[in-house]
Design a protein around this nucleic acid. Structure first.
Length: 494
RNA sequence: CGGGGUGUAGCGCAGUCUGGCUAGCGCAUCUGGUUUGGGACCAGAGGGUCGUAGGUUCGAAUCCUAUCACCCCGACCA
C-alpha cells in the first residue's frame, strides 16, 4: 500500500502538476486574472523578503548601493544597442497612450497618444545606461556600483508560477568601470555572490559557468550563470552575471577622461536574480508532502502546535507554549533570533500538522498535557519527516544545531542527486541514448555551438554552461570527433 | 501567430449529441451535535445572470450566429 501523500499527484506521477500543487497547497502564489501575472501570497512573499534581505546584505558587503530607476523606458533607448533590441523587442509591453476617455458605450478607450511610445522595462540596461552617461565624466566618477530592486515585464507566451511570469520581481545590478579587468572582476565576483547565496542559503548546489555565444544575454560580451539541477533532472538557470564590455557604453555614450586626459568608453556589467529562485527552491527540496524550506530562508523556523481537549487544559498548554516560544526566540540562528510561531487556531490537530508540513516549516513542536507532565515535547523534522520526543530544555539548547543540521542535510541531499545524475558523454550514440531516457546533466566536449545545435534542437537539449571549475584541457567533440578545448553541461532546461 | 480544446457555485466536474419539472454532484464554507496525540463523523444550511450578445422556439446550459476569455501543443524565454 502506498503511503498517503499530502500532494497529489506525486513527483513521479506528474512533476509539472506536482509543482503547481505544492505552490497552491503552501499558499505561496496563485495565477491572477491578468494573463501571465501571479499574485504572490504572504507565505511566498515572506520567503522572497528573506532572500532579499540576505542578498541585499551581500551586495552591500561588496560595495554596492541601492537606487531606483523608472519603470518606463523611451522606445528609442532600446533601439540603440542592436542585439539588445533583437533579444527583447518581441516580449515588450508598450505604453502608447496616457489618458482614457468614455467610448460612448459605457466603457473606456485610450486617448492622448504619446509622442514616443514607452516600453515597460524588460531589464534596465538602457535607461540606467542613459543615466550613467550623465553621471560619468572623469575616472574619479568610477566605479559606479548600483543595484536596484524592481519589477520587470516580459510578455512571455507561456508562463509558469515563479519560473516564468509576465511580470516578475528581481534585482538588477548595473556597474561601470574604468577598465575591462575591473569590470570582469566585478562580473565574476557577483557570480560568486550568487553561487554562495544559492549554496549556503538556499541549500541548492549550483554549477558556475560561462554561457555559449548563442545563450548569451542580448548585447553582452560574456554571460556567466549559475545552473542548478531540479529533482526531475532538468536544469534551471538561477542567476546571471554579464560582462557587457563597451557595447552599452558605446551605444549610450558612457565616456570618461582617464588619468592621461584621454576620453575612453567605460566598461559595464549587469547581474540579476529573480523570483525564479523561489521556483528553484521549490523544485530542489520539496517532496510529495509539499514544500520543504531551508531553515536559513524559512519565514518560520519552528511552529508550536498546542494540543488540548478542553478549556482548562487550553490555558495550561498555552502558557507552557508561550514560555517555550520565549526561550526559543532567545536562541540566535544565522543572522537573527530563531523564528517561532504558535498555531492556536481552532483546527483539528491533524489538519494543523499537515498545514505546516505543506508549507515547509522546518520544525514542528507538538505540546500536549502528557508532554508537559514530562517536561518534554514532540519534534517533527520537515526534511526527514521523522519525529521524536525531546526534553523541553534540551530542545531549547539544541534547536540551533538542529536547524543547521537540516540546512546541511538539504544541501547534501540535493548535491547527491545532482552527482548521481551527472554523467560524461563521449559520443553521439551515447548522447542520444542518454537524452532519450531520464536525463540529468551530460558533460561533453564539443567543437562548436553551431555544429551541435541541430542535434540539440532535435533532442530539445540546451547547452547550459561551460563550467568554470573544469575549464582547460583538451578533448574530442562528442559529435564531430574534432579536437577541442571546450566542455559544457548539456541538459533539458526550464 | 499556426494546430487542438474548454467556458455551468470558491475549486473540480456531470448535464449539451437527442431542447422540457425549481440546473445537479464531490470538495470547500457556515450552523448544531458527537469527537479530538493526528488530514474525523452525523444532521442541516448558504452559495448560480450556465463566458457575453443576438437569434430560433410554447420552452434554451442544450440548437444557430457573432464575440470574448482561458488552457494545451508549437515558435519565444530569467
Amino acid at each position: 500500500m502506498a503511503a498517503k501523500t499530502a500532494i497529489t499527484p506525486t513527483r513521479a506521477q506528474d512533476y509539472p502538476e506536482w509543482y503547481q500543487q505544492v505552490i497552491a497547497e503552501a499558499g505561496m502564489a496563485e495565477n491572477s486574472s491578468v494573463r501571465g501575472c501571479m499574485v504572490i501570497k504572504p507565505w511566498g512573499y515572506a520567503l522572497w523578503e528573506n532572500m532579499q534581505r540576505v542578498l541585499d546584505r551581500m551586495f552591500k558587503d561588496t560595495g554596492h548601493q541601492n537606487a531606483y530607476f523608472p519603470l518606463f523606458i523611451p522606445m528609442s533607448y532600446l533601439e540603440k544597442e542592436a542585439k539588445h533590441v533583437e533579444g527583447f523587442a518581441k516580449e515588450c509591453a508598450v505604453v502608447t497612450h496616457h489618458r482614457l476617455e468614455p467610448d460612448g458605450e459605457g466603457g473606456l478607450r485610450p486617448a492622448g497618444p504619446l509622442e514616443e511610445p514607452l516600453i515597460v522595462r524588460p531589464t534596465s540596461e538602457t535607461i540606467i545606461g542613459a543615466t550613467y552617461a550623465k553621471w560619468v565624466r572623469s575616472y574619479r566618477d568610477l566605479p559606479i556600483l548600483i543595484n536596484q530592486w524592481a519589477n520587470v515585464v516580459r510578455w512571455e507566451m507561456r508562463t509558469r508560477l515563479f519560473l516564468r511570469t509576465a511580470e516578475f520581481l528581481w534585482q538588477e545590478g548595473h556597474t561601470v568601470h574604468a577598465t575591462a579587468d575591473e569590470a570582469m572582476a566585478e562580473t565574476r565576483q557577483m557570480l560568486d555572490v550568487y553561487a554562495t547565496f544559492a549554496e549556503e542559503y538556499m541549500a541548492m548546489p549550483v554549477v558556475k559557468g560561462e554561457k555559449t555565444p548563442g545563450e548569451r544575454f542580448p548585447g553582452a560580451v560574456m554571460t556567466l550563470s549559475i545552473e542548478a539541477m531540479m529533482q526531475d533532472g532538468k536544469a534551471l538557470q538561477a542567476g546571471t552575471s554579464h560582462f557587457l564590455g563597451q557595447n552599452f557604453s558605446r551605444a549610450q555614450e558612457i565616456k570618461f577622461q582617464d588619468q592621461n586626459g584621454e576620453v575612453a568608453y567605460a566598461w559595464t556589467t549587469s547581474w540579476g536574480v529573480s523570483t525564479r529562485l523561489i521556483g528553484a527552491l521549490i523544485m530542489t527540496h520539496s517532496d510529495d508532502d509539499g514544500l520543504v524550506l531551508p531553515p536559513k530562508l524559512a519565514p518560520t523556523h519552528a511552529v508550536i502546535l498546542p494540543i488540548y481537549r478542553d478549556e482548562s487544559q487550553r490555558a495550561e498548554v498555552l502558557a507552557y507554549c508561550e514560555a517555550l516560544k520565549a526561550d526559543l526566540k532567545k536562541q540566535m540562528y544565522d543572522d537573527g533570533a530563531v523564528r517561532v510561531d504558535i498555531d492556536d487556531r481552532d483546527l483539528r490537530g491533524g489538519e494543523k500538522k499537515w498545514y505546516h508540513v505543506k508549507r515547509g516549516v522546518p520544525l514542528r513542536i507538538e505540546v500536549g498535557p502528557k508532554d508537559i507532565a514530562n517536561n518534554s515535547v514532540f519534534v517533527g523534522r520537515r526534511d526527514t519527516n521523522e519525529s521524536q520526543g525531546i526534553g523541553r530544555d534540551d530542545l531549547v539548547a539544541k534547536i540551533v544545531g538542529l536547524l543547521d543540521e537540516i540546512q546541511t542535510n538539504l544541501f547534501n541531499r540535493a548535491l547527491a542527486l545532482r552527482t548521481s545524475r551527472t554523467q560524461e558523454i563521449a559520443n553521439e550514440a551515447e548522447f542520444r541514448k542518454y537524452f532519450a531516457g531520464n536525463p540529468g546533466f551530460a558533460i561533453c566536449w564539443f567543437s562548436s555551438e553551431e555544429e551541435v545545435q541541430p542535434l540539440l534542437d532535435e533532442l530539445k537539449v540546451t547547452i547550459r554552461c561551460m563550467p568554470i571549475e573544469s575549464a582547460g584541457g583538451e578533448g574530442v567533440c562528442f559529435l564531430t570527433g574534432k579536437p577541442t578545448s571546450q566542455r559544457a553541461i548539456f541538459a533539458k532546461a526550464y
